[in-house]
Amino acid sequence: MTDQTPVTPAEASLEVAAQVTDLPEGAIELEVVGVRHGAFGSVDGGDTSGFGGLVAPIVMPGPSFPPYGGWFDEATDELALALADRGVPMTTAVEKVVVHCGEITFVVRREHLLTFVSALRDEPALRFEMCMGVSGVHFLADKGRELRAVYPFLSITHNRRVRVEVTCPDTDPHIPSIVSVYPANDWHERETYDFFGIIFDGHPALTRIEMPDDWLGHPQRKDYPLGGIPVEYKGAEVPPPDERRVYS
């Protein structure tokens, strides 16, 4: 181990991001959400493996470009038309489209979320009758886009699924509520608020649902500790899971 100050994930992330985005023209833009150090997750010394200096970016699947294949193209075209009818060009509403593992994700700008989901529900060619809730994801090192709300949609008519992702920064955790369009998301949005602190503007009663009403903090955020108590085992002590050394 060297005695230099360890770089914070945020700094390293920027550094690495600067390196990996320096790509030849035409190459796709990468989505770096964090950085991995070493191979054993220990940041304060004690790693004698020789892998301690390893720095690797965490790159999520990047944007895809048409043709996406299968029914994705048809649905995207219909969506573009439907959005145009509602006065919002596709390029304004949608940041990017990601096709990965045979699933399509629309990353939607939060100010256009309601228009977008209304089009998904009402357009006969799309007809996504059901929203299967919302799940939160917290990328601590992805500055300005820390919190993600991920909505899976199901169309029973066309037997299709799409996913909509919306990002918002930790400093301004607001996303419009889609309960007015999909009432099913009432409890799901409360749950995501409870666990991630994303405030769904326009929700009829955004209160905690799983945690007690007077709970402090939002437990599923990555900066919220797991808790737990050290366990004594034959004289030695086993630390709680979130303090153990891990294979990162």
């Binding site: 790159v59 990965h100 996913r163």
Partner: peptide
Amino acid sequence: EGFRVPPGQVYSA
């Protein structure tokens, strides 16, 4: 250690 799973997200129902 377990195995590594490539980055990404899926929804399986």
